[in-house]
Write a protein that binds this DNA or RNA. Structure first.
Lengths: 123, 123
DNA sequence: GTATATAGTATCAAAAATGATACCATTGGA
DNA sequence: TCCAATGGTATCATTTTTGATACTATATAC
């Protein structure tokens, strides 16, 4: 579609067939929604593998219950892998999967959006 | 940092200074989190201006209460503008602001991620 | 005169998400 | 011997989010 309808909006998609270009936001929200998931992912994706208590210390305000809970959900959805070492005291490492690494662009876009917002309101 | 540490993770940022490259996810979640916000934004950003009941019909399962609620929040956060026409029956139009249009890249990245996931699991 | 469409608000109920607390196993060190 | 550290789980309480319901106003069509 190369006609310039709707110049003010995003681009040239047919405005009457929303469902064709919409991806299922409820499904996405299910996966990356949750109070701590985005920050966990950000840390693992950009910072690399971390241990459980390491994450706990990095994430301000998270409780052990919730950290476990969110990590389990991320694991179920294939975004995080969990490796248990047979040591005492226990050592458990969490790593972003390839599927999570594929979220880099989204995080980058979020980041740029956020920074732009700060610049726009400052300048 | 130009040494190739952590080849498996995203890139070359210093893993010990997470807060330097992290953008505040709680703040972002505050703005675009919520059961219906992403889908509302997607419609307004890529589909253009819509009336209240038009949105209601497009968004499966949303109640009037929640649609109002989410639109008000988006308006407060500067992502949506609301225009009331002095007509009877009332006409109210909602439009994505520039700040919302700036989210296009994020939506695109989400979309690509989703599609890639479907391809990876199919192929 | 009555129903219809629009775009709401107010109130309360229900459900979902989150948090607090107590508990567990193990081993090394003081 | 007792405490600390790790990475949990189970249970219950609280908070937050979401939903249902009833109500509003007004012009037009029937």
């Amino acid at each position: 579609m190369d006609t310039q309808v709707m110049a003010e909006t995003a681009d040239q998609k047919d405005p009457d067939k929303v469902e064709e270009w919409l991806c299922p936001m409820p499904d996405i929200a299910q996966i990356i929604g949750g109070k701590w998931k985005l920050i966990i992912l950000q840390i693992l994706i950009f910072g690399g593998t971390r241990r459980f208590n390491e994450l706990r210390r990095m994430i301000d305000g998270v409780t052990q219950t919730m950290l476990t809970n969110q990590l389990r959900a991320l694991e179920r959805d294939g975004l995080v892998s969990r490796k248990v070492y047979a040591e005492v005291p226990p050592r458990v490492e969490y790593t972003a999967t390839q599927r999570a690494l594929d979220l880099q662009e989204m995080f980058q876009a979020m980041h740029d959006w956020w920074v732009k917002g700060e610049q726009d309101s400052a300048g």
